[in-house]
Design a protein around this nucleic acid. Structure first.
Lengths: 264, 264
DNA sequence: TCGCTTTTGATCGGTTTTGAGTGTTTGGGC
DNA sequence: GCCCAAACACTCAAAACCGATCAAAAGCGA
């Protein structure tokens, strides 16, 4: 019931670090341990955290461990990509956000945008954007894939057909040298094609690691992409293809000042 | 309804910082704390901000606080109801779980069940059950209603038609003396009817507070319900109806040790 | 100018939050 | 198993914060 700034912040820290310690929080906020304990108890009572001796930990669940790991990789690059992508999205837009940790990063950067309509087949995107009261959210239906929070199945396509997007932001598992976009799930083929058809502009977000991997299913091509946000200079071959196809490549540098994650 | 510039600016600051403090705003605008409080109260009432002691914060975090409050009411009763309901659900079942905090409580009690297939139009149910690796989850699509995490719209019905449920667990906003189930959203009518048609058994979960409220839309009747899990003896009238209609009423007692909610 | 409405600031009684004091519980070392 | 320091819950009084109320000030149309 009691709501304070602190509790929000504590939750935020917990989300970032996975846990919090009373002692640290006392230093951080300059209040007594008593007060911190009270906060933690309340957060635990309302189900956000789980109390442990000396502090509290995030209530495990919701997303599985492998995913959390993956989410951590290339975080700075993803944030930079998401930043560049989100500033290119105007208020009032109608968007599609697809599956993938990078599109989720984009969602997080859209929390300040206004009057958005976002359609997604990614439950994490919905959870993130729920925090933006100015954003209407439409979820496609489907089976929940724990691996990445994706909603898969034929339903997604039928939902997509009901919209016309200003921008569709998609990710992919890998990018081949010849500009093909690859994924692990063949069900995604239909979804991708549908998205590209229903969107006035298709934007791809993918960090450099996607060039170093491969995946079995072709879901599309860079040819279909209008803008490509990535984190490192493109391979020469791909760059040439982008020029030929009129795909704008936006190469962002994970910015330096994000490195000041001192011993907090 | 005050159209002052201040409120606009306050909102702007809140968006930038995620929070505002009364004290700071007093300095910033050179007005009294009283006036700032009024502004914050109004902004909170119209849903932009959330009031906290000493200031206000951006409405944030997956589900909003009004919902969290609601979740807190009758918690013990809900847990007891959910307990009774979940033990009646066998492993391997195909379920539907509807909108409402009580159905979410049921979801939480299903974390130990195995080989479930759960279809839901409640994003919170999906988030909760994601922690059970032995549970397949299918989400209906639709617009996300922040108020309660419900997915509303016509999509739900079309998803439901593809399944045949062993059990459908539903909640409702209110129960009338004549056994009618009431809700606030007329869109739920179609969903409820569809559920009842597609389920071999329909179970209603509702704590006693539902008898003390009312709501505008009739979504069904206790006549359509096979089992009714609730937390307090039914009104005589309703009990008679249940007997006439063959609706099994399961009255569970929120266990004793939860009654010590003293002057809190 | 006058009368009306809206906004603001001051006061006041009540509520919430906080930190300190006290005694109990927990977890790790032996 | 036992011991001890750290962490804990509980209570209480002080302080900060709150909303309600009312009167002054500002805005506005006639």
């Amino acid at each position: 019931m009691s709501q304070s700034f602190r509790q929000r912040d504590i939750l935020e820290i917990a989300r970032a670090d996975g846990r919090v310690r009373v002692e640290d929080l006392v230093t951080r906020f300059g209040v007594s341990a008593q007060t911190i304990r009270r906060d933690l108890t309340e957060l635990a009572e309302s189900g956000w955290l789980e109390r442990v001796h000396g502090g509290a930990v995030l209530r495990s669940s919701v997303t599985n461990i492998g995913y959390e790991d993956r989410r951590g990789t290339n975080e700075a690059a993803k944030a930079a990509i998401a930043d560049a992508c989100s500033v290119a999205i105007p208020d009032g837009a109608t968007l599609f956000l697809g599956i993938g940790t990078t599109t989720e990063a984009v969602a997080a950067k859209l929390l300040g945008h206004r009057e958005l309509l976002v359609v997604t087949n990614n439950i994490n995107v919905a959870n993130i954007l729920a925090a933006n009261p100015e954003c209407e959210i439409v979820l496609s239906g489907g089976r929940l894939r724990r691996l990445d929070g994706g909603l898969v199945g034929t339903l997604t396509t039928s939902v997509l057909e009901q919209f016309r997007f200003d921008v569709a932001v998609i990710g992919c598992s890998a990018i081949a040298e010849d500009g093909e976009l690859l994924d692990f799930d063949f069900q995604e083929v239909g979804v991708s094609q549908s998205i590209i058809r229903r969107a006035r502009a298709t934007w791809l977000v993918a960090d450099r690691s996607k060039f170093e991997r491969s995946a079995p299913v072709r879901v599309g091509s860079l040819r279909d992409v209008d803008r490509f946000f990535t984190s490192a200079p493109l391979p020469e071959e791909v760059l040439r293809l982008c020029r030929d196809w009129g795909t704008e490549a936006h190469v962002v540098a994970p910015d330096g000042d994000a490195a000041d994650r001192a011993a907090g």
